[in-house]
Structure formats: structure tokens, C-alpha cells
């Protein structure tokens, strides 16, 4: 576990920072001025840092609530995301974080209240619109819950805004926090999923897909609403059979009425990210099907993307209402 903690002088004495620090009794704590001193310098090696990440505690100064990328959403007019943390406990080979950040250290912004007041402002400003707030975009919030207590703080917060959706995107099977709180109708616990055999290769350090399904079933039975996120769809030689089996397994365990939404997403990277990924995983067959298009984006060939989307949609329609389907990106 974490043996090095860097904490900004400005927040090191706050309750949240101290609560987190107290969980790592053996870690060496070093004070810093700003997180950028550690997180931003170039010439850092993401893969090496990933073998022993440090924890950085900082104060977010601005940009608490951001517009979600175009095309991202589960049906609402306004979609926002907020990131109280950068980097992840897991180590998925296709994760865009390794192309995005110079550092693999866990960066946690501890001023949760500032996020909440910005979210509140956004909700009030657009109160006539339907909106969703996403977390788990730059990290897996639930996986880090034992350290941050983030969801424990935000579930009661969103319980005050019944018309606003709060989506927690995750691969974690940690369910403690969902046992502590009553299920919230406007909270979606959205699981990222892919066929088990692919997940074994690509979703490193993350729980197996069967464990995720088991946990979804548990949460659904408790009354939590579940999202299914097949994002990214991964191409491989027998993808059709693998995805069909995955869908059957999920709907064998979970009743359709417990599913809030289903979304499908494609694998896409900016070119520079992809070059880094190839350096990190030269032997990945899964990455070998990707190509650069004329806009400098790396993706599968359009025909592969279309075929996967169409096939998966039609398979999923065997189990679920098409009105629950959305595309990511």
C-alpha cells in the first residue's frame, strides 16, 4: 500500500487530509506547496510509478464541475462530471489516464465541500433542466472509497436533489458504503464491463467480471439502481460469442427492472496517448487492431465499430428495452 504521502501545506491540517493520512500509519508524509510540483513535471515514467504510487493530497482551486464530453450521457439534457481524484487503483491496459497524466501517483483533492457548493450552484442555475453528474471519469471513486470516503459524503449530498442524477462509474466490488446508506433513487451505480476473458488480460488489478456481476446483483437486491457500461467495446477474434455470453450472464443474475440504463462506447485515443500505450504494452494483441484516422484519433476501423455496436445492441435487445440504451461518445 501507499508508503509515501505528499500533502499541500494549505490543507495538510484539514480534517479530511488528516483522516486520510491516519489510514497510512507507516507512510512518510512530506509537505509540498502545490501538487503540481510532484504531479506535473515531465520526464516521469507512468508505468514505474504505477508499481508503487504515492498519494498526493491537495486542494482543488478551480474547475470543480466540468461539462461532460459531447455525446456522453444517459439521456439528460445537461451532463457534467467532477473529479475529486486523478488516477486509479486499477491498471487497465486501455486506460486513458496513462496517456493523459505525467504521473501515476494518486492525487486526491480533499476540499469536497467546494465541489458540493459548485454542484449546488450548477443545479440552481439550470433548475428547469434535467441533469446528470458523473464521477469516476479520472479515477474509480468506489475503489478508493476506503481511503477517501467520497461516496459516503456525496450520497447524502445528492439525496437533497432528487431530480438530479448522480452516476458512479466503477469496476469495484466494494459495497460497504451502499450498505450504510438507504438506496437513492437518483444514484446510478454504473459498472464498466467486458467479456471475462478480455478483462483478465486488460482490466489488471480490477475485480473479475463475475465478481462485478455478483456485486451488481447484491446492490440491485438492496434497491440500488444499476447502470451497465460496455465502454469500451473491445474487438478480438471471437468477440461476438464473448459478448453474447457476457450479456446472458448479466441478465441471468439481474432483473431488467433494476437496470437504469445501458451504454455502449468505442475505444478511442488521441494519437499521442496511443503511442505511449504501445510503448507500455508492445505485446498487446487487443491494441493491434487500432488505427489512426484522418483526424488524428486512434480507433477501430469504422466498419468494425459499427458492426460491434449493431451486434451488441441487437443482442442486448433480447433482454432489455431499447429506450434504456445510450451511446458514450
Amino acid at each position: 500500500m501507499v508508503d509515501t504521502i505528499y500533502a499541500e501545506d494549505e490543507i495538510i491540517d484539514t480534517k479530511k487530509a488528516q483522516e486520510i493520512i491516519s489510514k497510512f500509519r507507516h507512510a512518510k508524509v512530506t509537505s509540498i506547496k502545490r501538487f503540481g510540483e510532484i504531479f506535473n513535471p515531465s520526464n516521469q515514467n507512468f508505468r514505474i510509478q504505477k508499481t508503487n504510487p504515492a498519494l498526493i493530497l491537495a486542494k482543488k482551486q478551480k474547475g470543480f464541475v466540468l461539462d461532460a464530453p459531447k455525446g456522453f450521457g444517459i439521456g439528460d439534457q445537461n451532463n457534467y462530471y467532477f473529479s475529486h481524484m486523478y488516477n486509479c487503483l486499477y491498471d487497465c491496459s486501455y486506460c486513458f489516464l496513462q496517456g493523459m497524466y505525467n504521473s501515476a501517483n494518486y492525487l486526491v483533492f480533499v476540499n469536497f465541500h467546494d465541489y458540493q457548493s459548485e454542484i449546488e450552484k450548477t443545479i440552481k442555475k439550470h433548475k428547469e433542466k434535467k441533469m446528470t453528474f458523473f464521477t469516476g471519469y479520472d479515477c474509480d471513486s468506489l475503489a478508493m472509497e476506503p481511503i477517501t470516503n467520497f461516496i459516503n459524503d456525496f450520497v447524502p449530498f445528492f439525496s437533497r436533489y432528487k431530480k438530479v442524477l448522480f452516476e458512479i462509474r466503477t469496476k469495484s466490488i466494494n459495497n460497504t458504503v451502499f450498505r450504510t446508506h438507504d438506496p437513492l433513487a437518483n444514484c446510478i451505480v454504473a459498472y464498466s464491463l467486458m467479456p471475462e476473458a478480455l478483462a483478465q488480460i486488460l482490466d489488471k488489478k480490477a475485480p473479475s467480471v463475475s465478481a462485478r456481476i455478483k456485486n451488481m446483483k447484491y446492490l440491485a437486491n438492496k434497491g440500488w439502481r444499476i447502470g451497465l457500461r460496455f465502454d469500451p467495446l473491445i474487438y478480438c477474434s471471437n468477440w461476438k460469442a464473448q459478448y453474447s455470453e457476457l450479456f446472458a450472464n448479466i441478465f441471468n443474475e439481474i432483473k431488467e427492472e433494476n437496470i437504469h440504463s445501458i451504454s455502449l462506447g468505442s475505444l478511442r485515443f488521441p494519437k499521442s496517448f496511443f503511442n505511449k500505450l504501445l510503448q507500455y504494452y508492445p505485446n498487446s494483441e487487443e491494441l493491434s487492431f487500432l488505427r489512426s484516422n484522418d483526424k488524428g484519433i486512434i480507433s477501430y476501423d469504422q466498419s468494425i465499430e459499427n458492426e460491434m455496436n449493431e451486434y451488441c445492441r441487437s443482442e442486448l435487445m433480447k433482454y432489455s428495452d431499447a429506450r434504456k440504451f445510450f451511446s458514450c461518445g
Partner: peptide, 17 residues
């Protein structure tokens, strides 16, 4: 400016820092 040598060099060596 301050500099921070990477903790990856410290891994499991139990040397004072």
C-alpha cells in the same frame, strides 16, 4: 522551487528518508 526525487527509488529498501 523544490524538487522531489521519485519514491520508486525508495521502494522496499527501509533506508531512512
Amino acid at each position: 522551487d523544490n524538487y522531489y526525487p521519485s519514491p520508486s527509488a525508495f521502494k522496499n529498501n527501509n533506508i531512512e528518508r
